[in-house]
């Protein structure tokens, strides 16, 4: 196959917003309705089932809090990577992107520990609709974390060479979104329990 050439269309900019940034915001818009639909369903059930507060006690609040801290910190790193990319500082852009990926990795490890411990105590996905929502929402979020880490890994070689540095900004916007989703899931599944 002949080498791919970027069409003229891609570099046009009638709105004044670069095409890639515009597209990533549309991606987020469609993602918001996916998570929005799921969270709304959960909330409608939650209001009808006050007894779910007792179930929510069995999610691990400390682990969730740690993960919130890890994810927010990784968002800081991705901003630092963006700043470095803006200054054409490829060394630091690459470094902070790797730190962001590591943040995602720690998040997933903590999540894996939570899942293992919950499942081994009998809190499986089929135990009740609360746990079905818990696993579906957190796993869907986890998939987005893995997706973001994968894309960061894929753009690393180009970033190191100083090519397509605008991609650091785009993945950063996406990573913030993943972060914000977690900021909804954490209170809904961890904090709002009978214990608190």
């Amino acid at each position: 196959m002949s080498a791919f050439q970027v069409p003229i269309a891609t570099n046009r900019c009638a709105t004044g917003i670069p095409t890639g940034r515009l597209a990533i915001w549309w991606v987020l818009a469609s993602e918001i309705v996916i998570f929005g639909g799921l969270v709304t369903c959960y909330l409608l059930f939650r209001f009808r089932h006050p007894e779910w507060a007792a179930e929510a006690e069995h999610t691990k609040l400390a682990a969730g809090a740690l993960n919130t801290f890890v994810l927010l910190t990784s968002s800081l790193f991705v901003v630092l990577a963006h700043v470095a990319a803006c200054n054409k500082d490829t060394v630091n852009a690459r470094k902070y992107l790797i730190w962001t990926i590591l943040g995602g990795l720690i998040f997933l490890c903590v999540k894996a520990y939570e899942y293992t411990s919950e499942i081994s105590h009998g809190y499986t996905i089929t135990r009740s609709v609360f746990w079905a929502f818990y696993y579906t929402a957190t796993a869907l979020h986890g998939l987005h974390v893995i997706g973001g880490m994968t894309i960061m890994g894929l753009i690393l070689p180009d970033v190191a060479k100083g090519k397509n540095l605008q991609r650091v900004e785009y993945i950063g916007i996406y990573w913030h979104f993943v972060d914000v989703v977690w900021l909804f899931l954490f209170p809904l599944f961890y904090i709002a329990s009978a214990a608190s």
Partner: peptide, 25 residues
């Protein structure tokens, strides 16, 4: 399309789990 299909994507995941893992959404 983009603003309306999201909840169905979430619903499809839930229905798939109902079909395969036996959840009760």
């Amino acid at each position: 399309f983009m603003m309306s299909v999201g909840p169905l994507v979430a619903g499809a995941v839930m229905l798939l789990l109902d079909q395969t893992l036996g959840t009760h959404f």
